[in-house]
Each structure stands twice: as structure tokens, then as C-alpha cells.
Design a protein around this nucleic acid. Structure first.
Lengths: 214, 214, 214, 214
DNA sequence: CATGAATGAGTTTTCATTCAT
DNA sequence: GATGAATGAAAACTCATTCAT
């Protein structure tokens, strides 16, 4: 976390600089979007020379893409680590819903990044092979959980995995994205643990309530 | 309350210019966010002179605020016109869910605008009295529908109006915001009427499923 | 020639600024080439704001192209004004040779510009329709003079117009292009009127000597 | 006289690196001029480390000078090898004209380099003792050929050696310098052997035609 | 009420050169 | 003798805003 850890062995130095730039870029892009972000600021925050940023990433836009892909990959990595396949259907679904809310609450920059990207009609993400590749395994997991729940008589049979996926993600994403607006309007701090816990419980009830067989 | 009191409709020509600027600004801001939007472009699209834009609105940021407030007000106006108080609870709730999805699908610029605003941590919305004022009546309506549903034995008793509000809005908002990314990733056009109808049905089932008493 | 002639009538102002930029750009490009020229310097010399340069010409490269085309057109315009068709063959040829030497001597920036352009393998000129269009009439004139000379028994019959054209232009062009190097090496000022007159006489003798029938 | 005395051939490996840098620099400078050339590119093309370039040559400008001087020296070396003193006047003159055209056609980078240098008003060449030293023997040769031709009654008596020198060089230089522009404009490939042969014949005829006594 | 031209401060990008190993 | 990483100054280009008419 130090800006300059003890002089790293000749070779890891470039990688370290690259990483510091990526960290700084993530923060700056999440805070200001693509057009609002300042290359100078990213360089300053990262403790690197601006020239290095261009040497490693080519341009502001290419840096944006790399940051975006890494943010996606990071979320998917944690998601995978949940290993919900090993859980019974209801617990698995609960875990997924909770994870999604908690993850974005812990990483509001992920939400900010995605929303900023949506402004450009997904110009970058849509082009990214690696991001597309991250979706399919996730959907497979969900499909499996739903199937097992139906077989166990715990879930309704007509639930579509894609719709479920969208719903689970929506519930957390919107909450985090609009946290500031909503906190002001409702006069409560939606970022507090109490508020998060309440939202978490609600989200789980919504998803399980929907899946509950008639 | 407004920063700029309605300009006295001197000629009507002035009002028309003002309106054209607002329309162009809405499109440009929705497409590019606050920092990404170009004043030149707004002026060009509106067919008005740039100087007029400054005469009417003072600055890019003030124009942003006006556009934002109007977008909010427009949605609330349609919402009010639904008059769900006159409908039985289940129909009322169904109408609200449908309306929210359909409205944002019809007005993706509303979603884009909100997401862009969120980047600034709601810097402008939070300051707007008028926007805050729009929320309470809506929440009152929802509270009333929930109460009537509980009384009729059709809704669970422990549903929180604020959580329900967030959930209803989330379901449509996220769908529209990420339409391009998701369409690419899932290989379907989420903007098609078929896709929208499917999403609509799912959203209604989710909300009603959740509200259904145990 | 003034940087700011009396405030021009509202409309001609833009044209005047545009012209001042072109003049400054011609000087700067001729002195330093495309990559060596400084946009800041052009703006400063022209007394215009740098932004205007971009508003009128789009980019440094586009400005380069316009400057190049205008330099070509200017030379062709003077060439046309010679009206050599009205002169007897030997006088016509003499006029062409003299004009070519004197023109480039008076406009060394024309030569500098062309040589700079050649560095890019004529990347811009080759694409320019207007420049290509300027060549054919010139060649027609030369063809006509040669034909008349042959008919009058004053010129050899096997002279190729394109080769002649290249030779006439070469003789002046190289002299001007290398004036500084050669002046230093030979220890004389090749730009002096005496030197120019001597070169002029030599060039005429070379061309007429070549054309003289066996 | 040189800025950098020949580096003592310690290993030969050093000399090889130095040579590769010079070759790469020649190509890069010829293609882009002094300001357009990129040090990174030279280093990359030469396969050497950038640091080496600075160790051997001090700076981009010093490298430029060395490249320039070597280009000049190379041409003079071949010129000397012609040994026209041993040929009768007409053959000698023909050989000189042909050689000059063929040399620049074979070494267009020589022309490009000179033209680029001219942009700086011969700032570097003028300073170079070694280049100046290369001119006088050449002029002596030409003077000798002319004298012998006059004595043999084959050349006019009033031809100036300097003017003749300039003319001979002009005829080839301009052709090569503007090859791309002219090829496009005239719609023929001036670099083809057929075109070169035609130009060669024309140049010889021009020079001999001029020298032919009245 | 309206307009075309202008501006200055900022932003991204580039490049010759040097440092640490 | 050689290398990869770093740097600071400068260059191209952009943009919200204002002036003169």
C-alpha cells in the first residue's frame, strides 16, 4: 500500500508502477467518469510520471478499458470464490443475493465505473472479449442453483435465470449507485451498517419470496 | 425556489428558444454526462446561439441543474397521473411496477442523467428543494397501497415502503442503464418489445411474489 | 500587411484572421517543416488565438495542406499570367525559364515547403485534387511552345515536354533550395542580384542549347 | 576535425553497435527530417539501447551531423572512383551526368537528407569543415574536363564550372526529390528503370547540348 | 433579442534525455 | 558495455465563457 515500498528488485519495479497507476486510475475514473477524470491527477496520485502512464497504457481511453476489465474480473473472482454449488438451493440463493449487495457496497467504485461506462453505450465493455467471457460461468452457476431448487420443490419452476440474474444485481446496484441522492432525500444514511443490513434482509426476502412456489 | 424564475413569456419566441436549448441539453447531457457534454454541441443542436444559452441559464452547471430538475418533475407528473389510489391494492402495485419499467424504457435519458448525477455524489440533486419535494407524495401513495393490501390480506404486513420503493425502481432502472452492455453480452436486444414485456412480467411477479403473505 | 488593419466590417473579420493565420503558417512551415513548425508560434505570429487556428483549420496537418495548396496555386497563377502563348517560341521558352528561376528566388518558402512535403513522400500533395489540376494546363502550354518551335525550325524535334518541364524547374529549384549550403561552400552569395543574373543566363543557355536543332 | 574521433576499435562489438545506430539514424532522418525523426525509433531500429546512442553521439543533433557528413563522404568517394580524368571530355561529362542521376536514384535518402538540412539554412553543413573539403577536388575535376573539351573544340568556351556543376546536380536531385509527387501527377512511375533511362538520356543531351560549341 | 468571432486557462499527449542497476 | 524505467519540459489540442456589433 505504500507509495514506494522498499526499492523492488530491478524487475518488479515496472509492474509495481503499473499497478499504482491502475489503482489511482480506478479511483479517479470512479470519482469523475471517463471525461471528468484527469490524467494529471491519476499520475500524481499514483506517484508515477505522466509519461509512464502513456508508456504502459497508450492513452486515457485504453487505461479506462483496462481499469474496467479489471474491475469486472475482480468481482467475478470473488463471486467464484463463493462456491455456491456446494450449498443447498435456498442457502446458495441467499448467499448470491447477499454477496451482490455487500460487494457493491464495499466497492462503490465498481458501480460508479459501470454507470460511467453506460454513458458511452457500453462502447468499451461491449468490445471486451474478456468481460463477455466472465458472464457465462456465472449464469451457469445460477442456472444450476435454480434447477436444484426446483427439483427440491423449493423454487417455482418458471423462473428464468437471466431475469433472476438481472434482478439480483439490480437490487444492490441501484441502492449503491443512488446512495447519496437517496440518503439526502430520505434523511437517513444508507451507507450505515444498520441500513445495509436492512436492505440485505429485504433483498433476500424479495428474491426468495419470488422464487417460492405458489 | 427556482434559480431562475420562469422568464415572463414576453414574446413566446424567447420561451421557444429556451425550450429548444433545454431539449438539446437533455440529449447532450444524457449522452455524455456533465463533464462530457459540450456547450457548443448543445447550442448547435438547439439551433440557438451560444450566447443565448448563457443569457438564459448562466452556466453549464446551472443548465445541468435545470435539466435534472425538469427530468425528475416530468417523471413524477406521469406517476401522479396514474392515480393508483383509485385501484385495488394488487392492481395498484402492478400498475406502479409496470409504469416504472415502461417509463425508464421510454426515457433512457432519465436513467443516464441520474447515473451521471450520481458521479458527483448527488452534488446538484441534493441541493434541489424541488426534487426533494417530489419524493414524499410518491412515498405516501406507496404507503397507502401497502396499507390497503395488508388490510385486504393480500400483502405481507412487514413490508417497508422505502425498501419497496427502492426495489420497484431498481428493477427497471438497472435494466435500462445496462441495456447496451447486457444486450451485447446475452446476445439479445433487451430494448425489443418482446424483451420488455418479458421483463415487465418478471418484475411484477417479483414484487407481488415478495408481498404475498406467507 | 498590418497585423490589425482598421477594424474590418463585421463580416470580413473572420476572413482576415484566417488570412493572417495562413501567412504566419506559410512562414513557419517554410522555416521549420511540418514537424518542426510550432502551432504556438503560428498563432503568435498571426496575432490570432490558437483556438482560432483550430476552429478554421482543424489541425496542424490540415493547415499544412491548405498552405501547400495555396503556395502551388499562387505559383501557377503567376505562371498563367505570363501568357507565353502569345510569344514566339524562343522568347516563350526564355520567359518560362527566367520566370521559374526568378519566382523561386523570390519565394524561397515555396521551395522549402515542397522539399518538406517530399519528406512525407508527398503524402498531402498526392492526395490533393486541386494541385493535380494545376499541372495539366502548364504542360499544355509547354507542349504548344515546343510544337511551334519545331515548326519554325528553331527547336529539335525529339524533345519531350515532361522532361523539359522537369529540367526547367530543376534548374531554379535546386539553386534556391541549396542556396545556403552552396553559398558557404563556394564562398559567394548566391542570393545576390549578380549571382541570380548569372544563373538566369546560364539556365536560358542550357535550355535553348539543348533545344537547338543539330 | 571530427567532433568524435573514431572510437578506438576496442572490441569491434562497439563499432558494430555504432554502425547499426548510424544506419538506423540515416533511415529515420531521411524519412522524417531532423525534427521529425524519433530517437526512440532510431534506437529500436538499430537494436541498440537508447543509452548507447547518447554514449556514442552525445545528442540527436550531433548524430544528425555525423550522419550528414557520412552521406556526403560516401557520395564523394564513389564520385572519385569514377576517375573521369582518364576519359576523353565528352565521355567524361557523360559519365558525370549519368553518375549523378544514378547515384541519387539509388540513394534517395541522400537527397532527403540534404533537403532536410536545407530547412535549417544549412546550419550543420556550413559548420562542417570536412564537407567543405569535399567540394574543391570535385570542382577541379570538372574544371579539367571542361578545359580539355574546349581545347578539343568539343565544348563551348564560356561555360562556368560552378554553373555546370549546379546544373548537373540539379537535374538528378530534383527528379529524385519530387519523385512521389511527380509520379502521382503524371501518372507514371518515375522510379522504374525505363523512366530512369529516359531521364538519363535527356540529362546527357541537355548538358552536352548546352556545351556544344555554336 | 441575437450573432460570429475571440480568448485564456486547461488537458492530453509527446519527446529528448538521464538515472539506477 | 548495456539495459529498463523514469523524468520534466514542451507540444498539440480543447473548452467554457465573453466581447463587439
Amino acid at each position: 500500500m505504500d507509495l514506494l515500498p522498499e526499492p523492488p528488485a530491478r524487475h518488479g519495479r515496472a509492474a509495481a508502477t503499473r499497478q499504482r497507476i491502475l489503482d489511482a486510475a480506478l479511483a479517479e475514473f470512479a470519482a469523475n467518469g471517463l471525461s471528468g477524470a484527469r490524467v494529471d491527477e491519476i499520475a500524481a496520485r499514483s506517484g508515477a510520471n505522466k509519461r509512464m502512464l502513456y508508456a504502459y497504457f497508450g492513452s486515457k481511453e485504453e487505461l479506462w478499458m483496462v481499469v474496467l476489465e479489471r474491475a469486472y474480473a475482480a468481482k467475478r473472482a470473488e463471486e467464484r470464490a463463493l462456491a455456491v454449488n456446494n450449498l443447498p438451493p435456498v442457502e446458495a440463493m441467499t448467499a448470491l443475493v447477499r454477496f451482490n449487495l455487500r460487494y457493491v457496497a464495499r466497492h462503490p467504485e465498481f458501480v460508479a465505473l459501470l454507470n460511467a461506462e453506460n454513458l458511452h453505450r457500453a462502447a468499451y465493455l461491449a468490445r471486451s472479449e474478456s468481460v463477455r467471457a466472465l458472464y457465462s460461468p456465472l449464469l451457469e452457476v445460477l442456472r444450476d442453483v435454480l434447477r436444484r431448487g426446483v427439483e427440491a420443490g423449493q423454487f417455482r419452476a418458471d423462473a428464468d435465470p437471466v431475469q433472476c440474474y438481472l434482478t439480483i444485481v439490480s437490487l444492490g446496484h441501484f441502492y449503491v449507485a443512488n446512495m447519496h441522492t437517496l440518503s439526502t432525500i430520505f434523511g437517513v444514511d444508507l451507507g450505515s451498517e444498520a441500513a445495509l443490513a436492512a436492505r440485505e434482509q429485504h433483498c433476500v426476502q424479495v428474491v426468495l419470496g419470488y422464487l417460492r412456489p405458489a
